[in-house]
Design a protein around this nucleic acid. Structure first.
Length: 611
RNA sequence: GGGGCCGUAGCUCAAUUGGUUAGAGCACUGGACUGUCGAUCCAGAGGUUGCGGGUUCGAUCCCCGUCGGCCUCGCCA
């Protein structure tokens, strides 16, 4: 083994040149070819089997497991020590590698052909009162796993995931290094910007009453780097957003952040296509075809009701508003007449998978979670008839047209959302995803990569009664849409692109505004007057007047990408030390209170205790 | 901020309509056993049913509150 670096001093002030001398091999590397060698292994006791005379111990480290044998003839003291070993004790064992007797080879272990016949065992550290064992069959609750994260991280599954994560990041770094990118670090202590997510704030002691903000992303710094002439920047950047958590959201997360100068959208997308090809090949041995497919935002919303559609299965949304307008049924007519939409999905052959009770629960769900007023449905009977409580409200002719529109066949289950465009999108997207999962319409190990492009520049915020940037305020509109900024901002489309993997947004980027005038205009549309724009982003506006190249970039969510590549359900499972849904660290107890003196130094007083 | 699920032995779970002493597997302790590998066999110990209150003759079970974990809507440029 390679020396682990430098001089190290142990508690007895003895100096070792090389700590690796403690062991000669790892627990995953011994094979029949090592037979006869004297070796020393260190590791954790994974399991033990005491046969009265002979004792077997499976020794584990992150490389694998090796069986250690304690024969009765090694001496009473050694045998007693061997007998006292329990799960998760840390030991050092010296002995000879020997081929296992015929019939006792264990094909489940890579090292299963051999075993160590222990001649000397040292207990390096006893494991006392562990609340759970990494090797136990049933996974403990997540709160325990987080509280005793060091036990959880010993589990081979967690170790594999963190290795995968490490390899993904290494592949990214290699790829961008080969493509002439330079890695530049940007500040963690920055300035709060009111747009976007809530900031994590850090009080300044030196400037009492002022606060730093942790970066939501290095957005402005990387644009400044472009203006500074570093035409290809990349960084594995930690980002922070103080918003509520989800299974795929953490308050601090890691982005592969990059920016390029003198580029158009295709250059960025092409660069990331290349990265995805490389990652898919190296990690999953999948050959991706490039260019990865693209669709516009408008198409994605129309066909799937979502800006990050899962393309591993069909069940696309079908518009039936025109048919609904002809119906007697008041609900449908009303929606059609008031500018709403009536859209449907066809769950092929699923009519018998859902009972009335199931559908009632589904209806409640879309009402509660997505603001639907209701959920209409039809089942196609064996004779081709559409059955549903609302069937009597439609003429046979109209039902026939609807069937044709939906390509409905006997056994199909049709779900219809009649509502505002927005609600039909949310409801049918949710139903489509849920039904596809329940009906197993796709292989969970399939990987699908695509791009969604041309997002709207703005969203209208009815509460604040103003436009908000759909991506961020530095996003460039398509050149042909520049006039729309004055006439119809809602229609303006951005040069924006999201990378979508299996229905998850894995990354997003834009070409940036590199013209001071356009930037000021966008700030204006977002409700920022000149003064406050100058106050918040004056440095950027200045920089945009001092030789700013056309530039753009993208940020990929590394945690999500690892989660998707490793087929995990939760982002917490690919982060070594994640936070709970309430953004706390169960191991360290963060966040915690601080001493009064610290607050005084910062000029901070806690306004009111809640209890 | 809203909706939902969960909390019983160290761990994973069970406990009939609200009814006697709250059970099982794993782990743990003691014993037996020289080839196992999820070892096996025998015995044992282990409980404030998250916490507080209420209803009841009686609460793991029903109600209210609270704490914690998870899922989700809002939120996340």
């Amino acid at each position: 083994m390679a020396p682990m670096g430098g001089w190290a001093v142990d508690h007895n002030d003895q100096v070792f040149e090389d700590r690796a001398l403690l062991r000669s091999h790892t627990c995953g590397e011994l094979r029949a070819s090592h037979e006869g060698q004297q070796v020393t292994l260190c590791g954790w006791v994974d399991s033990y089997r005491d046969h009265g005379g002979t004792i077997f111990v499976d020794l584990r480290d992150r490389y694998g497991k090796t069986q250690v044998v304690f024969d009765p003839d090694i001496g009473d003291a050694q045998l007693a020590l061997g007998r006292s070993l329990r799960s998760e004790d840390v030991i050092k064992v010296t002995g000879k590698v020997s081929h296992r007797p015929a019939g006792t080879v264990n094909p489940k272990l890579d090292t299963g052909e051999v075993e160590i016949r222990s001649t000397e065992v040292t207990l390096l550290n006893k494991c006392l009162n562990a609340p759970f064992a990494p090797g136990q069959q049933d996974l403990p609750g997540e709160d325990l796993r987080l509280r005793y994260r060091y036990l959880d991280l010993r589990r081979p599954a967690m170790q594999r995931t963190l290795v995968t994560r490490s390899r993904i990041i290494k592949t990214m770094r290699d790829y961008f290094d080969e493509n002439n990118f330079i890695d530049v670090e940007t500040p963690i202590l920055g300035r709060s910007t009111p747009e976007g997510a809530r900031d994590y704030l850090v009080p300044s002691r030196v400037n009492t009453g002022n606060f730093f903000a942790l970066p939501q992303s290095p957005q402005l710094y990387k644009q400044i780097l472009m203006i500074a002439g570093y035409d290809r920047y990349v960084q594995v950047a930690r980002c922070f957003r103080d918003e509520d958590l989800r299974a795929d959201r953490q308050p601090e997360f890691t982005q592969l952040d990059l920016e390029m100068s003198f580029v158009e959208m295709d250059d960025i997308i092409g660069m990331i296509d290349g990265l995805m090809v490389r990652l898919a090949k190296e990690l999953l041995d999948i050959d991706l075809k490039t260019p990865l497919p693209r669709m516009t935002y408008d198409e994605a919303m129309e066909r799937f009701g979502h800006d990050a559609p899962d393309l591993r299965y069909g069940m696309e949304l079908v518009d039936c508003t025109d048919l609904a307008a002809q119906a007697e049924f008041r609900v449908f007519r009303g929606v059609a007449d008031s500018g709403g939409r009536v859209r449907a999905i066809n769950a092929k052959g699923a009519a018998n998978n859902y009972s009335r009770k199931d559908i009632d629960l589904m209806t409640e769900w879309v009402q509660q979670d997505f603001g639907a007023k209701g959920l209409a449905w039809f089942k196609v009977d064996a004779d081709g008839k559409l059955s549903s409580p609302i069937a009597k409200n439609f003429s046979d002719e109209l039902l026939q047209k609807f069937k044709e529109r939906m390509a409905a066949e006997p056994g199909d289950f049709l779900l219809i959302s009649a509502d505002t465009w927005d609600v039909t999108c949310r409801v049918l997207n949710a139903l489509r995803r849920r039904l596809a999962a329940e009906l197993k319409l796709y292989d969970p190990s399939d990987m699908n990569f695509s791009w969604v492009v041309e997002f709207p520049m703005f969203d209208y915020d009815p509460e604040e009664k103003r436009w908000v940037a759909m991506h961020h305020p530095f996003t460039a509109p398509r050149p042909q849409d520049l006039p729309l900024l004055d006439t119809d901002p809602q229609a303006a489309r951005a040069v924006a692109y999201d990378l979508v993997i299996n229905g998850s947004e894995a990354g997003g980027g834009t070409i940036r505004i590199h013209d001071n005038q356009i930037q000021q205009k966008v700030f204006g549309l977002l409700g920022m007057d000149e003064e406050s724009a100058q106050e918040r982003f004056g440095f950027l506006l200045d920089a945009l007047r001092m030789g700013a190249p056309p530039h753009g970039g993208i940020a990929l969510g590394i945690d999500r990408i690892v989660m998707l590549f490793a087929q995990l359900e939760s982002i917490r499972d690919c982060i070594a030390f994640p936070k709970t849904q309430r953004a706390t660290d169960l191991m360290t107890g963060a966040p915690g209170t601080v001493e009064r003196r610290q607050l005084q130094e910062l000029g901070i007083r806690i306004a009111a205790e809640n209890k």
